[in-house]
Amino acid sequence: MTEPSPIPAAPPRYAYNFCAGPATLPRPVAERIREEFLAHAADGASVIEISHKGPRFSGILDTVETLFRRLCALPRNHHLFFMHGGARMQCSAVPLNLIGRSAARTAGYVETGLFAQQACREGARYGTVSTVAGSAATAFDRIPPVRARDCPEDAAFIHLTSNNTVYGTRWSDFPQDLPAPLVADATSDILSRRIDHTRFGVVYAGFQKNLGPSGMALVTVRDDLVGHALAGTPRLLDYAVQAETRSLDNTPNTFALFVLSLILEWVRDQGGLAAVERNNEVKAALLYGELDRSSFYRPTARPEYRSVTNIVFRLADESLTGEFLALAESEGLLGLAGHRTVGGVRASVYNGMPEDGVRALAGFLREFERLRG
């Protein structure tokens, strides 16, 4: 008697991941990773098995550097580094490398949310920091004006967070004519829109939103800001060492950089950052349009400061939040819970979120209001 053939498992349903990070990858990139993980080249070695000093990985790094510079119009006098520890490690690396430029070891910080505050606290470990502007008094619902007269005259740098994932605000334009170089934590909007890198001394971003696997950071540093590290700065956090070794003083996460190379190729194939930015604005407009349609949902950020990548809102009847999140998850809409410090709901629609996923969420918002409104 022959054994019956096993019933094949049903293919997994594709869910839409709205988590703030690690975030969803563009579907074509995920498929290329699967296809090329073992067969990226003809030498029989997986992409995670190759030497970071060998020609194959050098080719990946060349692709990353060339495409990022071209897509972002990164000036020739700005270095491009890839460093361990994500954006949180750069909260230490920035003051370690820059604050010594000020005789009094002074820096200014703009506090627009949780991660901006964390950066400020870390900066205070290495010198004197000044909060030059902030929006805590209004529950971080806006971006405050930053004026030169509010900045320390001898500041080594002024730090801001370009997009605030917890509270759903972002900078649409950036301060000018400040007395010190501008530093931006761009973790949650890197590659989602065009920015003018000539206005910044340093831009850094954790990989896990729009760049790939978590644990690494992309860092751009203007030439004149390299070589000022405080005595005792750990070697792997010294920008001069990164510049001298092309980010290869220690073995980098080769897989993360391989994924980044695929993401940059995907951005290029979409038509570049201008096209990606337009698509992100369309996705955000779909959700904000649904949220603003009635008083059932309440976006937390003031309209003129709303983030395009992190859409944060609450239900008018907050007792329904748990049911909302559970039902959304059952419908394949994942990662919608707001940050644990503020609660509510948050939809993160980074580059990898397709418009179909946003339309599915917009439809769910309307249906849940019909059921419970």
Rank of each mutant, 00 (worst) to 15 (best):
V202I: 15
V308L: 14
A205P: 09
K209H: 11
L248N: 01
T309Q: 13
I263W: 00
Y305F: 15
L237G: 01
P213Q: 04
R222C: 05
G212F: 00
A316Y: 00
L291P: 03
A275F: 01
P303Y: 08
L291H: 03
S214E: 14
L264W: 01
A275P: 03
R293G: 05
A284P: 02
E281P: 04
V241S: 00
V219Y: 07
T245D: 09
V226D: 05
T245F: 10
S261R: 05
L248T: 02
V276L: 03
Y288F: 14
L260V: 03
T254Q: 01
F255E: 04
F296D: 08
T220I: 12
N279S: 14
L225Y: 10
S261A: 15
I311Y: 04
A284K: 02
A229M: 07
A205T: 09
T245Y: 12
T233D: 14
R278K: 15
R302G: 06
N280L: 13
N280R: 10
W266E: 11
Y305I: 03
T233H: 14
D292R: 15
L287G: 13
V202H: 10
E304L: 12
V202D: 03
P303Q: 09
I263C: 00
Q242R: 06
A284V: 02
V226E: 06
W266T: 01
G212A: 06
S294Y: 09
G232F: 07
F313L: 03
Y305M: 12
L225D: 10
V308W: 09
A275V: 09
A205Y: 04
E290N: 11
H228L: 13
L230Q: 15
P213E: 04
E244A: 15
A275L: 03
R268M: 08
V267L: 08
N250S: 05
V308Q: 12
D292W: 15
V282G: 02
G289M: 05
V219S: 10
R298I: 07
Y297W: 09
Q208D: 14
A301E: 13
G232P: 10
A301R: 13
T245W: 12
R278N: 09
L225G: 12
R293V: 02
L236P: 02
F200P: 12
Y239L: 07
V241R: 06
L230I: 12
L211F: 09
V203I: 12
R306G: 06
V267E: 04
A240K: 11
A205K: 02
F200N: 09
K209M: 08
M216T: 13
T254M: 00
G206D: 00
F296G: 07
N210C: 04
G215Q: 00
V276G: 00
Q208F: 13
V226W: 05
T251D: 12
N210E: 04
E304K: 13
T309M: 13
D249V: 00
E277G: 04
V312F: 02
L248P: 00
E244W: 02
A240M: 10
G232L: 10
L211C: 15
G201W: 07
R306A: 06
V312D: 04
R268P: 02
E265S: 08
T309D: 09
E244I: 01
G272E: 10
S294K: 09
T300W: 02
E304V: 15
R222N: 06
A243V: 14
V259S: 02
